[in-house]
């Protein structure tokens, strides 16, 4: 499924992607995802890691039927904008859900799943996705 780039490119974001870690401005307390060098709210430059709870609601969604190369085996798959309970919106795949079940405001929780694999001999990339809560 496409040759991988040098692994460093993916490796440097493992933690943020496995765990859904973003940024929190030490000056104004604004939380955002992904973590940025400059606070989008107050312009502060002192940003610390922020662990999101992983709970959120679907703002919008689509079903990808013609994926970019590298994702063909997974099609069709849902992608959504999810508003996290702490405020920020993230884009991610939905998983363990039928397209017909998805709706505006649907509650979801973060899980860590395989996002992409590179051929038989390449690395496997894992990252956050969202699914309807278990309970």
């Amino acid at each position: 499924m496409g040759r991988p780039m040098q692994v460093s490119r993916y490796w440097r974001h493992f933690k943020e992607k496995y765990r859904l870690i973003g940024g929190k401005c030490k000056n104004c307390g604004h939380v955002h995802f992904p973590k940025r060098p400059v606070c989008p709210e107050c312009g502060g430059k002192d940003i610390e890691d922020f662990q999101f709870s992983g709970k959120g609601k679907v703002v919008s969604w689509t079903i990808v039927r013609n994926p970019p190369s590298g994702y063909e085996y997974y099609k069709p798959y849902p992608i959504a904008l999810v508003e996290l309970e702490e405020g920020p919106v993230v884009l991610a795949q939905l998983t363990d859900v039928d397209p017909e079940e998805i709706d505006f405001g649907m509650e979801v929780e973060m899980v860590t799943r395989k996002v992409r694999e590179f051929e038989e001999d390449g690395i496997i990339l894992y990252g956050y996705k969202f699914r309807p809560p278990i309970k």
């Binding site: 689509t62 970019p68 992608i79 992409r116």
Partner: peptide, 20 residues
């Protein structure tokens, strides 16, 4: 890093806006 990584196409991004 934060959109294409998730398998999004440009059409899909516009579809998200369209649905909303």
């Amino acid at each position: 890093e934060w959109e294409l990584f998730h398998g999004v196409s440009f059409v899909a991004l516009n579809a998200l806006i369209m649905r909303r």
